[in-house]
Amino acid sequence: MQRCFYFAKADFPRFFELMRSFGPVHAPVAVSSASSSFMPVSGVDQINMQALRTILPPKKLFYPPQEPLVSFSEAGFEQTAPDTAPQVLFGVHPCDLAGLAILDKIFVAHPGDAHYMSRRQSTLVVGLSCLPDPNCFCTSMGCGGAPARGFDLFLTDLDKGYFVQVGTPAGLSLLSPAYEYIRPAKTEQTDQYKEFWQKREECFVSGFQGDNLPAIMDVESDHPMWQELGSRCLSCGNCVMVCPTCYCFDMVDTLSLSGTCGERCRQWDGCQFNGFAKVAGDFNFRATAVERYKFWFRHKLHGFEDPYGDKTCVGCGRCRVSCPADIDRIVEMVPRLAGK
């Protein structure tokens, strides 16, 4: 189902109201001079249209850092009802769309995660084009081109207006009350769209040949680089928290003061933390930071036998900008492993 539309930038406030008619809109908001966060917004002026990577990826909307899944009381156990009110997620870039597609695979695989899936189903995703900075390498990871799926609507910024790709029937029905100013794309607009994505490709200053990556990770699993960089790892877990495709969690119980009722909560966890692979009797299967660092990168750049089954880095550059030890420079690490 791809149908293409176009509307003028002057009409963006109207488009914003259209999204609001569906539900609360979450969009990138500048939270400091250098960073943005997905937050609920009530007006267009709050949105940072130039935002590149947000601090946390959009996974936080579907898979919150902490969320109760089950409540218990003397009466028994009950599943907490996930919030399924309709909402709009606006401003998702190609890397993050690819990241969501990976999380979808994990959480939808049998047995599907009720909380994730119901939020995903009640959210309209509106993507937005972007231009890379030197930390972006989505094209190297195979997800940097013009997206063709994974969104309800996708907006490409064409100077004077937005080219709109429709990805789902829900996206199409959002547009239908606005055909007065959202018009089917004309040939010249389609040409501009193609030109944008072609030029965008040329804007990447960082990158590498990604096809060989899993093989290179196999061949160079004992490369001295792992020891050299891994030994500087602080096991802080920043990389895991900011990565759009990291999905590991822990479960903890919280108890009311009376001690008779409480909740079972899920919270983000990560393989870079020391106790992650500990078993009873205090055996730790990945006891050193080097082993954990290597393990994390293997999942990102090679892939595991999980329901996704492929490399899980989408080239967003978040780990690079969040690592206090400055050892998550994938764009330099990969060429080093590859011998370039």
Partner: peptide, 25 residues
């Protein structure tokens, strides 16, 4: 093999043995 199984359903990632989920495989 004993691993730190948290979820049992292939989602939480705790039970990876190298790249295999031991709660599944």
């Amino acid at each position: 093999l004993e691993r730190h199984m948290k979820c049992g359903i292939g989602k939480c990632g705790h039970c990876f043995v190298s790249g295999k989920l031991s709660c599944q495989c």
